[in-house]
Write a protein that binds this DNA or RNA. Sequence first.
RNA 1: CGGGGUGUAGCGCAGUUGGCCAGCGCACCGCGUUUGGGACGCGGGGGUCGGCGGUUCAAGUCCGCCCACCCCGACCA
Length: 477
Amino acid sequence: MAEDRLPKQSENFSEWYNQLILKSELADYAPVRGCMVVRPYGWALWENIQKALDTRFKKTGHVNAAFPLLIPMSFLEKEKEHVEGFAPELAIVTIGGGEKLEEPLVVRPTSETIIGYMYSKWIKSYRDLPILINQWANVVRWEMRTRLFLRTLEFYWQEGHTAHETAQEAEDETLKILNLYTDFAINEAAVPVIPGIKSDAEKFAGAQRSYTIEAMMLDTKALQSGTSHNLGQNFAKAFDIQYLDRNNEQQYAWTTSWGVSTRFVGAIIMTHGDDQGLILPPKLAPSQIVIVPIFRNDEEKEKVMTMVGEVENALNQFRIKVDNRENLTPGFKFNDWEMRGVPLRIEIGPKDVANQNVVVSQRDIPGKAGKLFLPMVDLAKNIEKLLNDLQDRLLKKATEFRDSHIFEPKNFNEFKEVIVNGWAYSYWCGDASCENSIKDETKATTRCRPLGQEKTSGTCIYCGKPADYKTYFARSY
RNA sequence: CGGGGUGUAGCGCAGUUGGCCAGCGCACCGCGUUUGGGACGCGGGGGUCGGCGGUUCAAGUCCGCCCACCCCGACCA
């Protein structure tokens, strides 16, 4: 068995990322350019993400439904900004059943339009509001430049679509979801994110306001990891979503939409991974624990496997896997599971049978330093603590990394220096021209203006005009 | 769509001035010995050499066209 190492993060981060996904069997390239196959290990991770989000959606009163993949072209055209934003990346079906179609059908790039159409049918009165629907779906956007999980032609996501009586309710919903996403990212994925508002240039095509959670990857690039849009009455007017209000007058509804995609898998990979491979947060890892049995002969095997069974049983509350592949050495398995990011590894050999303890190795602490002996007594309780501690350490480490790479440059020259290896938190006057110039000169875009920021007075990092708020700038995925 | 690169076994590659049945490492299969940090020996299976056309007695090898994918840019969850 030959060593087949990953490139080092420090030497070639993007190759590290690509190869790790293939080797750890999260995903593979499909025969169509830009499309990916999410393999069982990757899908299991996505399913855990889905569960964590879906539970939160349900708790806040949302319900799931399914809307069609194909949308009449004319629907897209009803909202001006929306069609302008999406036109370049549409896949369009022109032939069906061997016949040219009267009207082309668009493979959904997102579902605001078709859901808007349905909402206009369903909503008659204020009594029908709010309507809070989510769907788990795939969407297609014809991207020029693709990257596994981060940007593929087809990707999987959830898209929530809600309609409300008042502007305030819609805004409350938009922010409620942003907070929900923030809570999910931090407390389930241990991905520290900064919630904030997007600039006009970066907002969703057709939205009044877009909010985002922004995460810093280990190469210091920013990754937009979830978005929540207040659509105002834009789509309600385009699709005639009207209701009779409490004063018996016709009103347009106020709508929102929000989504998290399989891109989030990329966020997890690039937030926690190291040169050895993935490090998955215990709360989302497909396997939280892997047991590697060690033995030299049948006699030892029998004793060891008996104990493996006992341990597996004692830990059945966790997602646990026994690696009983017989043709591989323990050493190989150690490296293999480390590459796949399993948080805890339990090693059980003849010595452990004799001592009635197990060796536990913690994925985020390399080598011997991360290994400890645990007695069989209270094993589950101790393992639970180790998983929780590991989860906490991941969040702490990622947060410290992020905070140590956010700078507040004093002038634009300094800005250009820090942006190469970090984010800049700077005053910005809000003019699109400054935003554009900064992008042209540094490749950095505005990421968001964080929520809850107090108004202060400063000067724009680019033009020097007065500015009231600071904005995060970064190179991004 | 512009610039660059690569197509030979599942993966990574070699294949000289064109020349015999197209090779190597890993992976895979069989047997045996191994197994506490990426095991070893022996024996096997696996190829329209990206496609089409041309030059030639003879083409992975030379020529032309096409296709695909990867990397770097413009657009984007």
